[in-house]
Design a protein around this nucleic acid. Sequence first.
DNA 1: ACTACTATAGAACATTGTTCCACATGAATG
DNA 2: CATTCATGTGGAACAATGTTCTATAGTAGT
Lengths: 201, 201
Amino acid sequence: MAPRVLRTPSLKIGPEVLGATLHILDEEGPDGLTVRAIAKRAKVAPMTIYNHFNGKNGLLEIIWTEGFSTLQRALSIDGGEPAHDLFASALAYRTFALEHRAHYTVMFVHHFEGFQPSIEATQLAVQTFQVLVSHIQRCQAVGLFEGYSATNAAQMIWSACHGYVSLEITSVNFSSDFEGTFRSLITGLLRGLGPSATTPV
Amino acid sequence: MAPRVLRTPSLKIGPEVLGATLHILDEEGPDGLTVRAIAKRAKVAPMTIYNHFNGKNGLLEIIWTEGFSTLQRALSIDGGEPAHDLFASALAYRTFALEHRAHYTVMFVHHFEGFQPSIEATQLAVQTFQVLVSHIQRCQAVGLFEGYSATNAAQMIWSACHGYVSLEITSVNFSSDFEGTFRSLITGLLRGLGPSATTPV
DNA sequence: ACTACTATAGAACATTGTTCCACATGAATG
DNA sequence: CATTCATGTGGAACAATGTTCTATAGTAGT
């Protein structure tokens, strides 16, 4: 006698599948992320991933979008002193990466074959970068980062954050104190880009 | 009548296959790098790649090793003033990446499924990092970078270089002047890490 | 209770890395 | 020069991948 086959209620499918995707990314890394593995983990038929999402790429796009939304919120710090907010944003960038490894992997670390974020998703990423630019502009309004275009300065700071964090997240960090060295990096860079004696934070 | 099948002379196979691999990486990116594509381009049977190298991973390992050897040489600048040499090394890092995109991709940018460099290959990478550490130590001997461990300082500088270059190489650079912004980044960072008024280069 | 969705299993296809095979080529040996 | 032997060749074959199609059957709304 054929065993009774239960269907997963439609409303639960979305969270179930997304959760499985993130779990697999966290536990097995990008290589373990196959459609069949996701389906199995979510207790769902592989086809469902094509019905509900747009296949594997659809899932990745959702994670990308979720990730940039969260990151954008995390970077939008407006507590008071511009230089302090900028520094806090840099720390928040690293915190986001460590707390959302799966998202960060999809957004920045791993290239998934055949996955290209849509135009809207790409614009969301650009918006996130603009948050950094705004921080710089607020700093410039109080005399910091003179002589640099805000975009160029933002690119520098982002490069430092991204470089450090992506090396840390892929276990290529020889430093003795991961967080301390990151703070030193950001502090040093901000000091070096600012006027002679500026010491943010 | 069967067409006469020509064999590639053994001695030419190595360079031919490696050249094809680099060409494909440059022109089609990592996704286009399939064993069959390499074989076709090198006018060689797919099997040859398993006889001469250790399959696709063997090829990648050769490129990795070649890459780190070249990079290590490029970073080993010992012209005179320590701070100047360190700055020149940072510029050389970027130049290496731009001039050897395929190598840099294998070394730092793209994760190839199933490829893990051997222990010796990994040690070569560590050696390369040590070149940076040596630069820092020479700088510290003349009073720069006080208060930082050489390893931590090297990690910071490498992070900045890697972050900027990997973003540039993947076309995620909003800066108006790619080289100029990179120079600003390094100059700024070195200034910020050094004593108050140090201006390398 | 009946009908319209839609989730399911399973087969199927192309592409991937990889292995196995029989055969033919080219270089070294006698 | 003739023979031998290592090795490059083409082709089939395997498992795993993303993806599509089909017929079936469970679920939800009327």
